[in-house]
């Protein structure tokens, strides 16, 4: 095995398997903290950053993506509030009472479908943000976190009094 190939493997790493593509530049990637700008790739090979402008755009996009995730959770809460407001104090009735506690607010199948869609979209977008952060690019991580911070600042002012996660001995949730 030649020396040059060995040294190359350190850089291109996992992309090696498919690094035989015809494009001129390959994605630079590192599984350690880095500040790559040119030739950095996020998430997919097609998201390949050639220029500084493209990188700036990507970073701004990541920032707003993180903000949007917080916004989505606000939409979830608002929709739940809307359901509560429109349930007029009714709780679930019929055979569903077997599977749900008696205090469950009345919710229709469509409402619950929308809730599930929003919940899983939240999960999906959070997962994708995690995958972007996994590029270990310092800028991406920084702006992802700042986006979450700003997003929480903008959209989460209605969560006073509710614990962030369900901890505590017998919080009735």
């Amino acid at each position: 095995m030649s020396l040059s190939k060995m040294s190359m493997s350190g850089m291109s790493g996992m992309g090696m398997g498919s690094s035989s593509n015809s494009s001129a530049a390959t994605c630079r990637m590192s599984m350690l903290w880095n500040w790559y700008i040119h030739d950095s790739c996020f998430l997919a090979k097609s998201w390949h950053i050639n220029t500084g402008n493209k990188f700036a755009g990507s970073i701004i996009g990541i920032f707003f993506f993180a903000v949007a995730i917080e916004g989505l959770s606000l939409v979830q809460r608002m929709f739940d509030r809307w359901i509560v407001a429109h349930s007029n104090g009714k709780t679930l009735s019929g055979p569903l009472r077997i599977f749900f506690p008696s205090s469950t607010v009345h919710v229709t199948v469509w409402q619950q479908l929308i809730r599930a869609a929003m919940y899983s979209s939240f999960y999906l977008s959070a997962t994708i943000l995690m995958l972007i952060v996994m590029s270990f690019n310092g800028y991406a991580i920084l702006f992802g976190f700042v986006g979450a911070w700003i997003g929480f600042f903008l959209f989460a002012s209605d969560t006073y009094g509710t614990p962030s996660t369900g901890t505590g001995c017998c919080e009735s949730r």
Binding site: R81, V84, L92, R115, T162, R173
Partner: peptide, 8 residues
């Protein structure tokens, strides 16, 4: 479906 009351 039972999480409405908490988040809401």
């Amino acid at each position: 479906a039972d999480t409405i009351s908490t988040k809401a």
